[in-house]
């Protein structure tokens, strides 16, 4: 009986390791492709590991790796003024990634702030139309951006014509905030609901106003929830492509996902450069995820259980 159980656990472990490998294989092969030499990239038939010799299919002592793909993405140029004597001129680093950083940071900050305030109001006060409002927010949190792009595009064009000094980057941030808010409010409200009201009441008897109770008592207790919605929004905006591509007229305002798409649409044959760009663009979110995965699972499941 014990042997049987052990065998079962071996089988399950084996199958799960197999699944993990299959799931990870696309990422792994992209990573390998990104460090192949140009000659190995253009091999026909293609090979996974650039480790073959004339006599053997795989000889780990003869693996050929190169940073050619990464250097094509970075496009280092000599620059006497720079600290390293070189400066990065690849557009992914000079334009697209900084833009993405801007959009993701500000959209996540503003979303967390506005969602925190609104969720506080919805969690702590009873007023007419509250249920209707909650249901509408839940419905809106399922609405994808796609069908609104046409109108948002026209809106952007109109405002660009009417408002002098109009900043399209801010419009993009507002679009992301408005789109992420309904879901964020639901998740944060879920977190607020678990914090007992008695704590605030005690503070209010001591003379604190509702807002200072929110800032000093509720927010610190809900900090894990607020952090998790910040991270989720950050990653969502980091990964967003279609609105970024279609709403912004000029490519120098667009983000990293457009950078990847640009590589593909130019149909260059330097596939190691495309692979390197992919790795560089997903690396930050994977690192964030690996260090904060509990936060991700928390807000994801919170949202899913409600919806």
């Amino acid at each position: 009986m014990k042997n049987n159980k052990q065998l079962r656990s071996w089988v399950f472990n084996g199958v799960l390791i197999g699944i993990c490998f299959v799931v990870f294989f696309p990422i792994l092969s992209t990573l390998l492709l990104s460090i192949k030499e140009p000659e190995d990239v253009r091999r026909n038939p293609p090979i996974l590991l650039p480790c073959d010799t004339e006599s053997r299919a795989i000889d780990l002592r003869h693996c050929r790796f190169s940073l050619d793909g990464y250097s094509r993405v970075l496009l280092l140029r000599p620059n006497p003024n720079s600290f390293f004597g070189q400066s990065v001129t690849g557009r992914l680093f000079t334009q697209y990634l900084p833009n993405t950083l801007f959009y993701a940071t500000f959209a996540a900050l503003i979303t967390t702030l506005l969602a925190g305030l609104a969720a506080y109001g919805l969690s702590r006060f009873r007023f007419q139309g509250r249920r209707l409002l909650l249901t509408s927010l839940l419905a809106l949190s399922g609405v994808p951006l796609l069908t609104m792009l046409l109108a948002l595009y026209q809106m952007n064009v109109r405002m660009r014509q009417l408002i002098p000094g109009y900043e399209e980057r801010l419009f993009m941030v507002v679009v992301y905030v408005g789109f992420e808010l309904p879901f964020a409010i639901w998740v944060v409200k879920g977190f607020f609901d678990t914090i007992p009201v008695e704590l605030e009441e005690a503070a209010k008897i001591d003379g604190a106003s509702p807002l200072s109770a929110l800032v000093r008592i509720v927010a610190p207790l809900a900090a894990p929830g607020l952090v998790s919605i910040f991270l989720l929004t950050y990653v969502n905006v980091w990964n967003e492509f279609i609105a970024n591509y279609l709403l912004l007229g000029r490519s120098e305002l667009r983000g990293a996902m457009y950078g990847i798409y640009e590589y593909i649409s130019q149909s260059l044959s330097a596939y190691n450069a495309l692979a390197a760009a992919c790795i560089l663009v997903i690396l930050p979110v994977i690192v964030i995820f690996l260090f904060t995965r509990q936060a991700f699972f928390r807000s994801m499941l919170e949202g899913a259980i409600k919806g």
Binding site: I19, C20, V23, F24, P26, I27, T30, V235, W238, N239, E240, F241, M257, I260, Y261, Y263, I264, L274, C278, V281, I282, V285, I286, F289, L290, R293, F296
Partner: peptide, 17 residues
Amino acid sequence: TLIFVPWIISDVVAGAV
């Protein structure tokens, strides 16, 4: 954790991969 990684990757990069 391992199985979850593809979800964190954007659809554009997933398509590229």
